[in-house]
Nucleic acid binder design. Structure first.
Length: 304
DNA sequence: AAGCCGTGGAT
DNA sequence: TATCCAAGGCT
């Protein structure tokens, strides 16, 4: 947490301890008993939960996580199966390339880390599909190494409580990273709990759309609250288009292959976007390029 | 370093 | 119905 750079804000030093105490107490009280928070959960279980939760709500992750751990209790079990089965078991969590990278990372654990989830932060970061968030989260939650975990929840909680703005910046900035580092409790155990607790506060109370400030344990010291909860001021935040995009068509193609035990004939894929066969062709080529789909006798399949 | 990459619930 | 948004990562 002491990474150099200028002091972030006088408020952090002043409100920090009170912020920590209130959020940690709240977390002990109402934090969810998610199975990967069980002290007996394996690092592999924590690792799976973090990758599955990238851009996917916890409620949808839970049943898939249970099935994965039952079928593949260790990285070696997954690596011994086919990547296509990983994509199939991924079901509808979205962004199926994450399943592919999970399989690749399991293979890397077998090759380089004796079949274990690596404890070292840099080793974690080197795994496919693992970026700054996931590496820090696994280090902290699976191994008690208090790296600064910065996800969309933490960013929003700090933007409001400390910076006094409704939303965090569109993309993670260096200033935000410094703020998150400076906001970490000094005590190792408290830091690890803070990582989970600040995420949980953002997920349950300090939400993006309709924050439940009446139920917030730190509303009394929240800079945004004290400023009268000013509306976002700046360029409009842009959502991503969906209808008619390659993403939509790619999703339909992969869904068909997931649900079929046999190769899916090329002509059946045209139904995923009847208006424009060239779009289907382009998306299919992209999926093959990405390793999510393979040509086979009689059509296309998930990678074997 | 913006834009791409799925899916479905909530409002 | 349309829009927002969810424990990001990669190029």
């Amino acid at each position: 947490m002491h990474r150099g750079g200028p002091a972030v804000s006088p408020d952090v030093t002043g409100a920090g301890p009170r912020l920590h105490a209130a959020v940690l107490a709240w977390f002990d009280d109402v934090g969810r008993d998610l199975p990967w928070r069980d002290p007996d959960c394996s690092p592999w279980g924590v690792y799976l939960s973090e990758v599955m939760s990238q851009q996917t709500p916890v409620a949808r992750v839970l049943p898939v996580w249970e099935r994965w751990l039952e079928r593949w209790p260790t990285p070696a079990d997954l690596a011994a199966d086919s990547p296509g089965e990983a994509v199939r078991m991924w079901d509808r969590l979205g962004y199926p390339r994450r399943a592919l990278r999970l399989w690749e990372s399991a293979a890397a654990m077998v090759e380089r880390h004796d079949g274990q989830v690596p404890r070292d932060h840099d080793d974690l970061l080197a795994l496919p599909g693992v970026g700054p968030y996931t590496a820090a989260a696994v280090a902290s939650f699976a191994f008690g190494d208090p790296r600064t975990v910065v996800d969309t929840n933490v960013r929003r909680v700090l933007a409001r409580t400390v910076s006094g703005t409704q939303h965090a910046a569109p993309a993670l900035t260096a200033a935000e990273m410094r703020l998150a580092d400076a906001s970490m409790p000094a005590d190792r155990d408290a830091a690890n709990r803070w990582n989970a607790a600040s995420m949980e506060l953002g997920a349950l109370v300090c939400t993006a759309r309709a924050p439940r400030c009446d139920d917030c344990p730190v509303s009394h010291l929240c800079a945004w609250q004290l400023a009268g909860r000013p509306e976002h001021d700046g360029p409009p935040r842009r959502g991503q288009a969906w209808h008619g995009t390659d993403r939509q068509v790619r999703g339909r193609i992969v869904q068909l292959l997931r649900e079929s035990p046999d190769p899916v004939p090329r002509r059946d894929l045209d139904g995923t976007w009847p208006d424009d066969p060239t779009k289907v062709e382009r998306c299919l080529a992209g999926l093959v390029e990405d390793g999510l789909v393979e040509p086979a006798a009689g059509g296309y399949v998930l990678p074997r």
